[in-house]
């Protein structure tokens, strides 16, 4: 049974339809890569799934519970969010909090963990992303790659069932991309369920188990990763893969 299933999600901004009926399903332990050209609606899809935007219509089944994405209640949103984590393209660490506080805040304020326990869990998470030596730094004192690893730790600390990533390396200088991708690779190997919007083809190819290729607000192709890259079924997918590989070499 899938952990998350999205059915027929629609979303418009000012009369322009950005998501035109997307279906998606993620099983426990899956790493699903969402690929597609700029403007195809990938970010909007993730934001609707985590309720940062309200979808116009669509359905979500999360852990067997069914929700109407347009009419979902605040209480239900809060319940689902406790089981998910979101990693933003531009990190969005809390600027007035130290690294440690960034990770503990959700644990103490939301989950009401005692300080000591929150700290222990935060340290665990920070060790996993290799940021345990920077606990007292503020985000402004860190590189982009370090900030993004802290953001991942912040997500991990709440022990989510799934982590959503929206182009986690797109804002990074090239030399910093590797450290973030290797953390994500490790998480995938440990069995973390992840939904990753990315332009990193090599990462998608080697880490993801499934690919969803989007264009113009629709899913053009959805396939196991190996099949998608070795034998894409749709002309648009083939073109996309070719153009990405060319731009990489060129």
């Amino acid at each position: 049974m899938s952990m998350i299933e999205i059915r027929n999600i629609h979303k418009s901004f000012d009369g322009t339809e950005v998501l035109k009926g997307i279906d998606l399903s993620v099983n426990k332990g899956d790493v699903v890569a969402i690929l597609g050209p700029s403007g195809s609606g990938k970010t909007t899809l993730l934001r609707c799934i985590n309720f940062l935007e309200r979808a116009d219509s669509g359905e979500m089944v999360f852990d067997g519970e069914r929700f109407n994405l347009n009419a979902i209640r605040r209480r239900e949103i809060a319940r689902i969010r406790r089981k998910t984590a979101f990693v933003f393209q531009n990190y969005n660490l809390f600027l007035n909090k130290t690294v440690l506080e960034n990770v503990t805040l959700g644990l103490t304020a939301v989950r009401k963990l005692p300080k000591a326990e929150a700290k222990a869990r935060a340290m665990d998470a920070l060790v996993r992303v290799g940021m345990a030596d920077k606990v007292n730094s503020y985000p402004a004192q860190l590189s982009g790659g370090q900030q993004q690893r802290v953001a991942i730790a912040r997500g991990l600390a709440s022990e989510p069932e799934i982590i959503y990533f929206d182009e986690p390396t797109s804002a990074l200088d090239p030399e910093l991309i590797g450290e973030v991708l290797s953390v994500m690779r490790k998480l995938a190997e440990e069995g973390m369920t992840m939904l990753v919007v990315t332009h990193e083809m090599e990462f998608a190819r080697s880490v993801s188990s499934k690919v969803l290729f989007m264009e113009g607000g629709r899913v053009i192709e959805s396939a196991p990763t190996a099949a998608f890259f070795s034998n894409p079924q749709q002309a648009r997918s083939r073109e996309f893969i070719r153009s990405i590989l060319q731009s990489r070499q060129g």
């Binding site: 985590n50 309720f51 940062l52 809060a78 969010r81 406790r82 998910t84 984590a85 979101f86 933003f88 531009n90 969005n92 660490l93 809390f94 600027l95 007035n96 909090k97 805040l105 959700g106 304020a109 939301v110 989950r111 953001a151 912040r154 997500g155 709440s158």
Partner: peptide, 30 residues
């Protein structure tokens, strides 16, 4: 204060007032 601060707060499960109190107001105060 950037909207991303609010959104990140929601994503770690805080509610509006918690985010205002812990994140947005301190930054605005500064």
């Amino acid at each position: 204060v950037s909207r991303g601060q609010m959104e990140a707060g929601y994503c770690v499960g805080m509610n509006y007032f918690q985010i205002m109190w812990h994140v947005v107001l301190p930054q605005a105060f500064r």
